[in-house]
Design a protein around this nucleic acid. Structure first.
Lengths: 312, 312
DNA sequence: ATAACTTACGGTAGACGTAAGCATC
DNA sequence: GATGCTTACGTCTACCGTAAGTTAT
């Protein structure tokens, strides 16, 4: 068994069971990948992929178990390389930030601006995705730093530290009838077509749950991936929306109004999330502290030590 | 980076930083191991081992982090092979049981006898060691099945299911003065030289804690690794001892007597422990159910599902 | 006919083993 | 001088890429 074979396997899965795309991604030839996978299956004595009409189409039952172990195993080993690279450079040479679109768009830029001055040579990659994507990435790439704007269910592999809370507001087109009500209720708001996030975004569920808790049934007219799209749609009077306060800028969004009934929706809790196995360096700690002064190195080290308990 | 290199690395650590012994263990030549490790260190750009007078003597600070990830990563990948082997054979071809000496000696034989009839072709390896060894093995070899006779601190990687409780008894040489007391206290018992387990055995601490709780200070005259040695010593009147009731056999141990004051010591809780990542097959479930009828397949599957929660 | 995986085959890198070299006790 | 790690070097395996083959849409 060879590491390369396992990487090929992972690449094939990551590329939707396409050997050709996997080969491209791995900068190698397609037959090589094909053959190595066959060899591996032969050596293990079990089919990993379901072959459908001479094409890979999925994982066998056993393949799923194998891929599970393979993913986490390779993640560990890959981190060794990432870690080695970071210590070689003394200070990290790149940061991988995974976060929600809202954070990437409305809070990170300020942080990145300051950070870039502190560490002009560090490349920062920002990815955004839904909570599931973020957690997935934190699991498979230990070096990533996650910023989640949803309440992630406690995860034994991750260290999750809430550090901020953003109020949510209802935005409406300028001069909207709702503005005339002194303190509109959730039921009042539910009367109007609602524009909200797409399924993969964590905030969607939080918002819908709030309506549901009081028995209100909003009519969702559109699900968008980010607040910018939502705002654009609200401007065009397609409906109203609930967004984090930080996504609203009174100057730029002059075509929108905010309802005063602020606290109808629970705030969005922003947390830092990192893989427990991650070893942070000075650069990372500085970045994190820029997110929130509360997240000091000392505190993070304490929190990290906490739950572990029984490590040898 | 090559899988083989990583295996060499692990072998060197496992063999007390001896390259030669690692090479032997890996059935290869010493120079090969030496060179591959150098190559790996070069590729990673960091020293993993502390070299002391042309000899490896420990891990560097970075080496520790690397080895940590490497151990768990390789464990995952090795399990793939183990798993593949087990599905190839339809029923498992071997079981690895790790347990305390007491269990291995006094409860397992009966179980193994029945199991051998059910699965005559399955080879069963029984290892014994202290709680730390057992947990270590369960962490690095997922295929292992652990039977712990101590209360293991909750471990996120392991599924621990208590299934039995053994009373502890005080054994004394036949006709010992203590037998004349109607119900001796812990203080009375502490008057006599005590033979107990060695440090690595979990029961030692449980027993000493019991004395300490009432302020008694037994004089430990000997620490042995297993109950058989302890019994032999008690027979020769070196002292008295506290052992699980199952370790005492009235017929065979005719030179010993048991104190009637039974419940002075807390019982020894016996638990099944398996790695959460382990996939159990019919053979394993049958083995486990032989340990205790309560440990049905259904129950184990339920318990396994429980704490996970947030897996993708 | 095209797209995708598989088989066939030759070249080459790199892992392994032997043998010699060095350092420490 | 014995032990144990390192360097040097030749061999040989096996991985990879090219090219041709197969299969299904």
């Amino acid at each position: 068994v060879n590491l390369q074979q396992l990487r090929y396997l992972r690449a094939v899965v990551a590329n939707g069971f396409s050997v050709s795309r996997a080969a491209q991604a791995m900068h190698t030839s397609q037959p090589g990948v094909s053959q190595q996978i066959r060899l591996l299956e032969e050596e293990l004595g079990t089919e990993i992929f379901v072959r459908d009409k001479n094409r890979l189409s999925g994982l066998t039952r056993h393949g799923q178990v194998i891929m599970d172990r393979l993913q986490s195993g390779l993640a560990e080993l890959d981190y060794i390389k990432s870690y080695a690279k970071s210590i070689r450079a003394e200070t990290a040479s790149e940061l991988l930030i995974v976060t929600s679109h809202t954070q990437a768009r409305y809070t990170l830029p300020r942080v990145l601006e300051v950070f870039a001055k502190l560490y002009p040579k560090v490349r920062v990659d920002v990815r955004h995705g839904g909570p599931a994507d973020i957690v997935d990435t934190l699991r498979s790439r230990f070096e990533a730093i996650g910023i989640l704007s949803s309440n992630v269910t406690a995860d034994k592999d991750l260290l999750v530290l809430p550090y901020a809370s953003h109020r949510r507001v209802v935005i409406v087109p300028r001069g909207h009838p709702l503005l005339r009500q002194s303190s509109p209720s959730l039921h009042d708001i539910a009367q109007w077509p609602l524009i909200t996030y797409e399924h993969s975004v964590g905030a969607r569920q939080a918002i819908l749950d709030t309506f549901e808790a009081v028995g209100a049934e909003p009519h969702i007219i559109l699900g968008a991936i980010d607040a910018d799209v939502i705002k654009a749609c609200v401007e065009r009077d397609l409906g109203i929306a609930v967004v984090p306060e930080i996504a609203f800028d009174a100057e730029r969004d002059s075509n929108l109004d905010v309802l005063v009934a602020q606290d109808l929706f629970p705030p969005s809790i922003v947390s830092l999330a990192i893989n427990r196995k991650r070893v942070l360096g000075a650069c990372e700690y500085d970045f994190i502290q820029l997110l929130s002064g509360d997240l000091t190195r000392k505190r993070i080290e304490e929190e990290a030590r906490e739950i572990q308990g029984s490590e040898r």
